[in-house]
């Protein structure tokens, strides 16, 4: 029995990394997936790849910081697949820069994508789910929503915001059968992490390795599926033990 049979899942940041790994797993569990990304080339080619596996997949180019884009992408999703059961609210950006050199515009941009964007997608998702009687949302926060690190003030502030946004929305919609949880990844083996940093970051992690995107996908699947039916407001840390140190 597949865990997401006939479910419709919207995945932002769906063209690469944790979003793409999650899309692959969701499809293998029977879901129809909507891949949302700014990168049209990657998005379209990934859509084609999933369709070649006989999966139902739809790529939508959208900027999650645009209210109009977010409204449109949900409209298109409902037109294509009739409903929205699951939203993996995953798109985000971040880069390392000393805070005294951080332009305000750069701060605004990071918080705009990583926090405001997550809110806009969640709000629209909730609007759709209220119509159909429920659903699940998984927001991508970070272990840097729990702890600090030098040079990432905007990212870390936004990710801390995502954790408490998750709790607050979860409490607000628990009675409407909308479950909202967050994923807090540690250091994950994606192209974002430069090769030369991988060894240092592995050594800093109690499991002495980086996490895999597939491992994040499995945690997202658990939180998105009925297997977690009594869990809401949770920020699941998947970091090999990094933040427990």
């Amino acid at each position: 029995m597949k865990k997401l049979q006939n479910k419709v899942a919207v995945i932002t940041g769906g063209a690469s990394g944790i979003g793409a790994a999650t899309a692959r797993l969701f499809v293998s569990e029977g879901a129809k997936v909507v891949l949302v990304d700014l990168n049209e080339e990657k998005g379209k080619s990934f859509e084609a790849e999933l369709k070649a596996l006989n999966a139902e997949a739809l790529f939508i180019k959208a900027n999650i910081t645009s209210e109009q884009d977010v409204a449109d992408l949900f409209k298109q999703t409902v037109e294509a697949f009739g409903k929205v059961d699951i939203v993996f609210n995953n798109a985000g950006i971040g880069r390392v820069q000393p805070s005294h050199e951080l332009e305000y515009s750069e701060w605004r941009n990071t918080v705009n994508v990583d926090l405001d964007g997550v809110f806009l997608v969640a709000r629209e998702a909730i609007r759709e789910m209220l119509k159909t009687g429920g659903g699940t949302i998984v927001n991508t926060a970070s272990m840097y929503g729990w702890v600090g690190s030098p040079g990432s003030a905007a990212y870390n502030a936004a990710k801390g915001g995502v954790i408490n946004l998750t709790r607050s929305l979860a409490l607000e919609y628990a009675e409407q059968n909308i479950r909202i949880n967050a994923l807090c990844p540690g250091f994950i083996d994606t192209p974002i992490i430069p090769e030369e940093s991988k060894q240092v970051l592995s050594a800093a992690t109690p499991m002495k390795r980086l996490g895999k995107t597939e491992e994040m996908a499995k945690a997202v699947l658990f939180m998105a599926s009925d297997d977690s039916s009594f869990m809401t407001g949770n920020a699941l840390t998947v970091d090999g033990g990094y933040t427990a140190q």
């Binding site: 491992e215 499995k218 658990f222 933040t243």
Partner: peptide, 15 residues
């Protein structure tokens, strides 16, 4: 499926 989940506490409490 949960190998990289380590040294952490997971509530299951309806929020």
């Amino acid at each position: 499926q949960a190998n990289f989940i380590n040294a952490t506490v997971i509530p299951i409490d309806g929020g």
